[in-house]
């Protein structure tokens, strides 16, 4: 995949470039701030961008704002935000326009390069990758919501993993159950949330959004 990286810490930026290049991906640009990110995305039209939230000049949410702009201007470009803390507020703003091709991970996750590149690939393919911390916080911030309280504990585990952006196979592996069991849980979740039968991927996104935003 073709990637643009925006990260102000040089050491991390270089490692990301090295890591992605070694895995056969093309890093079109690696820039240190949001302005350069906007320009690089406009120029290269990458499949996905990796964006640090806190960047110069104000070190607050430059990355997030650039990411939202990019999502608006180039829907085909996936955005993976990462930062050292999870801010529920940021996640809500990012997910406001849908969860397809969006990711939000703690920086710590970069340390597991295999999982990180998987997540990046998922986003590039139009999927979602949310940090377990993001999912927990958003679910907690949303509180009790209609439809959701009827879910069983197991179904909640499943939808939390769905919210991270995982496939049924990956969920089955994590929960150590069969693929069929996961499919049963997923179908039950769709029914309980009252999601009409349509194509599976779309219902999945709707269920996750319902779960995260209430």
């Amino acid at each position: 995949m073709r990637v643009v990286i925006a990260e102000d810490a040089a050491v991390l930026r270089e490692l990301l470039v090295l890591m992605l290049t070694e895995r056969g991906h093309e890093v079109c640009a690696a820039v240190p701030d949001a302005e350069a990110l906007r320009a690089a995305v406009a120029e290269h039209r990458p499949d996905v961008t990796v964006v640090d939230i806190r960047m110069p000049p104000t070190h607050t949410d430059e990355g997030l704002r650039a990411a939202i702009d990019i999502r608006g201007a180039y829907p085909g470009t996936g955005v993976l935000l990462f930062s050292q803390y999870i801010e529920t507020r940021y996640a809500t703003r990012l997910l406001a326009a849908g969860s397809a091709g969006v990711g939000y991970l703690l920086k710590d996750r970069v340390a597991n390069v295999a999982e990180f590149t998987d997540a990046l690939q998922r986003i590039a393919d139009g999927g979602t990758a949310l940090d377990p911390d993001v999912v927990t916080q958003l679910a907690a911030a949303g509180g009790r919501r209609a439809g959701l309280e009827s879910l069983t504990a197991r179904e909640r585990d499943v939808i939390a993993l769905m919210a991270e952006g995982r496939s049924n196979a990956s969920i089955a592996q994590t929960l150590v159950v069969s693929h069929g069991t996961v499919e049963k849980h997923v179908a039950s979740i769709f029914t309980k949330l009252g999601l009409p039968a349509s194509d599976d991927a779309n219902r999945r996104v709707l269920a996750v959004l319902r779960y995260l935003r209430g």
Binding site: A9, L12, L15, L18, K107, V110, A111, V113
Partner: peptide, 20 residues
């Protein structure tokens, strides 16, 4: 945030890449 945290992420990341 700008110092030790970044360096530790880089440290963990390079070790993971080496391990791979």
């Amino acid at each position: 945030h700008d110092g030790p945290q970044v360096r530790l992420v880089a440290l963990a990341m390079s070790l993971d890449m080496a391990q791979e």
